[in-house]
């Protein structure tokens, strides 16, 4: 069983950050400090989710599409840090769009990780 509550927490946190990023997008402002703090907070949850997943694999679990599972984990892990770098380079409304999109991708990746979680056995 995937850690449903943790996964849900990560996904909801991503959606909240996306909603919060919509404010500067609409107001034509660059992402503010709160958005970067938001990215860090969501990333902290992502790290927790990744650690649980790594423990899951270390415990001998064999998710369906093993390599793909790891691929999704890697993507999930690096997504927000890269988005943060890119958003910092773009101190305009478009930087906030970058945060928004990255935050929206988080729930998608969490969903895919959860779908592949349990083995095909």
């Amino acid at each position: 069983m995937p850690p449903r509550s943790l996964g849900t927490a990560v996904a909801v946190a991503g959606l909240l950050l996306a909603a919060w990023s919509l404010v500067p997008v609409i107001r034509n402002r660059p992402p503010g400090r709160s958005h970067f703090i938001g990215l860090i907070l969501v990333q902290a949850l992502v790290v927790a989710e990744t650690l649980v997943a790594v423990g899951h694999l270390a415990g001998g679990a064999h998710p369906r599409e093993y390599v793909t599972f790891i691929g999704y984990l890697v993507a999930l892990f690096i997504l927000l840090p890269l988005a943060m770098l890119l958003a910092r380079l773009e101190p305009t409304r478009w930087g906030a769009v970058i945060v928004l999109i990255a935050a929206l991708v988080v729930p998608v990746l969490v969903l895919r990780v959860n779908q592949l979680w349990s083995g095909g056995a």
Binding site: T68, A75, L79, L82, A83, L86, W94, I98
Partner: peptide, 23 residues
């Protein structure tokens, strides 16, 4: 500007499509 957003999304697709195809 918008170009930087495109770079990000294209980068995401470059990563995922290539990784998937490799597997």
């Amino acid at each position: 500007g918008p170009g930087r957003v495109l770079v990000g999304v294209y980068g995401l697709f470059a990563l995922s499509a290539t990784a998937r195809a490799t597997v």
